[in-house]
Simulated scan of single mutants.
Amino acid sequence: MAEQTLANHSDRLNAINIYPVADADTGTNLYLTVRSASQAIAELDNPDVGAVMAAAGRAAMEQARGNSGTLFSVFLSAMAEPLAGQKRLSAPLVAAALHRAQLRSWSALSEPMPGTILSVLEAAARGAAQVETVLNGDDSNHALGKTLDGAVAAAREAVVLTETQLGVLAEAHVVDAGAVGLLLILDCLRSVVVGQPMQEDLLDGLSGYKLQDPNIALTMPEQAGVEVMCTIYLTPLAAAGLRMQLDELGDSVIMSAVSEQADDAGAYPWRVHVHVPSPATALDAIQAVGDPNNVSISALSPNAGNDAHDLL
């Protein structure tokens, strides 16, 4: 359901994608990342809830696109941890999973910022926890629905606030694209679990989100530089060192372990994301500590060529 919903909304999400760079691809990135997760779980045979989330998270992480896709994949992977071995969702489990997801997502970024997808995830976790606390451990389906309602309602309030939390969004009079994308995903989860349609008024009143509104992203100045993403096996110490170096070389640094399974040398697979002036700036640092795979390189400007081979 989330895959189809994001496909339907990708153009409008792209149109308001101006933070952290105006590259007009948040909708596309979220859709492609969610599609990878959807394809992975379609191949599972009667798994438990945690297995579904874990498989979705791994697939999303390996194929993540952009800031938003990478953070969404961290969100999925983290949610899987409290759900391991569980056959069904419950209000306490949803609250615990959202709490874990917001902690992992904030820690994955070197410079987490309010007014983004992170704020919405934090609000959703808080909203779920508040409802679940009142329900006092009730694991009925009714309690589950109430908890998801609380998460989505809090998430929507956070989306509205993004316009005032970041200067570039306030000047353009739009909400954050990644924040809206996560809101849609959360309401898809609520819809599937409780067996109700998505909320028709969910997006009403969100600045910049009417279909007739202009494409803000394409009116913004071009952004120099590229986005580099890859997967690489590193020990935790080496990963910390690489993060520090990438922080010095570029920005929008995101690093998160793809799985908790280490190899014989104690190294874990890490997904790396960074914005840098040129591909070599990041690749030289990455290749100095390991052998990256699944490398993707894209121009930050929506008007520039996105073919990785042209940018190398």
Rank of each mutant, 00 (worst) to 15 (best):
V49P: 07
M79F: 03
N29S: 10
S107M: 03
R35A: 15
V120Q: 10
A55G: 14
L32R: 14
A91I: 07
R65C: 12
A108P: 05
L32Y: 08
T28N: 14
A22G: 09
A101W: 02
P112G: 15
E122M: 12
A108H: 03
A78L: 07
S90L: 06
I117T: 11
A95Y: 07
A129N: 05
F75W: 09
T28E: 04
L44F: 08
A128G: 04
D23E: 01
S38I: 01
Y31K: 12
S36V: 05
L32T: 05
A42E: 07
R100S: 13
D11G: 10
A124D: 04
R126E: 08
L103G: 05
Q39I: 05
A7C: 08
R100P: 01
G127T: 04
R100G: 15
Q63Y: 00
A96I: 07
E132N: 14
G69R: 02
D45T: 15
P112K: 11
E111Q: 13
A128M: 06
N29L: 09
A55N: 04
A96C: 09
I18H: 11
A42P: 00
S90K: 05
A129E: 13
V131W: 03
H99Q: 14
G50D: 06
V74W: 00
S105A: 15
A95C: 13
S68D: 00
P112V: 13
V131C: 14
P92V: 14
M113H: 07
A123L: 11
S107T: 02
T116G: 09
N14M: 12
L13G: 07
S36F: 05
L98S: 09
Q86K: 14
A51M: 11
A101P: 04
P82N: 01
A97I: 11
G50M: 08
Q63M: 14
I16E: 05
G27R: 01
P82E: 02
T33D: 11
L76E: 00
E122L: 15
A22K: 07
V49N: 10
P20I: 11
M53P: 01
L109P: 00
L30K: 03
A124K: 12
A91N: 00
P20Q: 07
R12V: 12
R35T: 06
L83R: 03
A40F: 00
T28G: 09
